[in-house]
Design a protein around this nucleic acid. Structure first.
Lengths: 226, 226
DNA sequence: GTCTATACCCCGATAGAC
DNA sequence: GTCTATCGGGGTATAGAC
């Protein structure tokens, strides 16, 4: 099906990439909510109306950025967990560190996908699957957690997690402690990163690095991974 | 020192309150970063320039809102933990639920203080102390956690936590597991709330309530509170 | 303290010439 | 595909009359 791209297609592709890259850079200066097509056009040295040939609207630009960001984050997560010969606690630690390292290196990209929702913007369904790919490695690890969720209501509420896991080739039985462990562990990592990026540790922690290390180690213990 | 307020002072006080209330309502529609003095003035039916008699700038308005929000949140946290006769695990659960309930009831206020930082705005120092008051009850509970932090680097980094705790009349020795427990537990609660408010549990959890309950119970267990 | 008016910016999106 | 021009909004902040 795919033939050699015409020069025209190549030019278009290139301009699309330039727009996305510029938008991302601008987002790092003013935040996701203040992303503007006009500023992107200014930066590229073209008329704002020209950008509309490549991007339907500001919201579409946001959506495409979200897809790019989730993709890169998922790549980083998978790369961090590439060594499946390591023990589970180590793999978990690698995943957690991959998340945090990426977040600290790209705080605005992180904010775009995990930060405060942008008022007036609703992410379309296409963004859901890329979002779950980030969690794949963690689900694979959590699949080894033993035990059962005691509370029936929680057990029922966690049921969809088993389906998600199945999509990644991970078998998690409905009601297994694996799903609860995944939510709890993911919450801890998220919370630490967001507090750190938000500056809420300033004055409270001299250095977040070793503390994160310990927090991750604690979650691994709690999960019975070590 | 304080005398009966003159009518003038009373009027001024009242207008200040109206401005703050209106700003907060507007924030709930467009988000913290899009808060605008003009819109507040429009809503109040006055000229935008009139508002500048009460508020120095948009940033000052943000700062004052942050102070109000931290104050209310701290009140909610303290109210939730008022019953100190309950066992520690129960008190911890009450604190966590107070946080989440308040966050779900006031998602934009929550975002103002714990969400993505607003580009171009830096919170002044005055906001630090009210921020820590929110954590007071949790620190009090965590003071009962036993054990020691094994890693020397983490131990050193956590040192300032002991000072903070001391300000609340809680004694936490430097290097005690209490400080690490506080960071870990606070991270978990933060992460869960932010994921929930960000809609990241949609499709993954049928009902977040019982799952949160279980997550909190797990942290209590892990801390040895129960 | 409030008003009108103003200076000087910003934005999304479209029309129509080239 | 790119341009200029435009519509119709938005914003911070200040000056000066009342």
């Amino acid at each position: 099906m795919s033939t050699t791209p015409t020069p025209r297609q190549r030019a278009r592709e290139e301009m699309e990439q330039r727009i996305l890259a510029t938008a991302r850079a601008q987002m790092a200066e003013v935040g996701p909510a203040q992303l503007s097509l006009r500023a992107v056009a200014r930066e590229l040295g073209v008329a704002s109306s020209a950008v509309y040939r490549y991007v339907e609207s500001r919201d579409e630009l946001l959506t495409r950025l979200i897809l790019v960001v989730f993709g890169e984050l998922a790549d980083a997560a998978e790369a961090g967990c590439a060594d499946t010969s390591a023990d589970l606690a180590t793999q978990w630690s690698h995943w957690a560190h991959a998340m945090r390292d990426w977040a600290c290196a790209h705080p605005y990209d992180w904010a775009l996908v995990y930060g405060t929702p942008i008022p007036g913007y609703a992410a379309p369904r296409d963004t859901v699957e890329p979002a779950t790919r980030v969690l794949g490695p963690a689900l694979r690890i959590m699949g080894h957690v033993h035990g059962e969720v005691s509370d029936p209501a929680a057990k029922a509420s966690l049921a969809p997690m088993s389906e998600f896991a199945h999509a990644f080739g991970v078998t998690i039985e409905v009601g297994s402690a694996s799903s609860l462990a995944a939510i709890a562990a993911w919450s801890t990592i998220q919370g630490f990163i967001n507090l750190e990026l938000g500056g809420h540790f300033v004055g409270g922690l001299l250095d977040a690095d070793p503390v994160f290390e310990q927090v991750v180690a604690r979650t691994a213990e709690q999960l019975g991974l070590s």
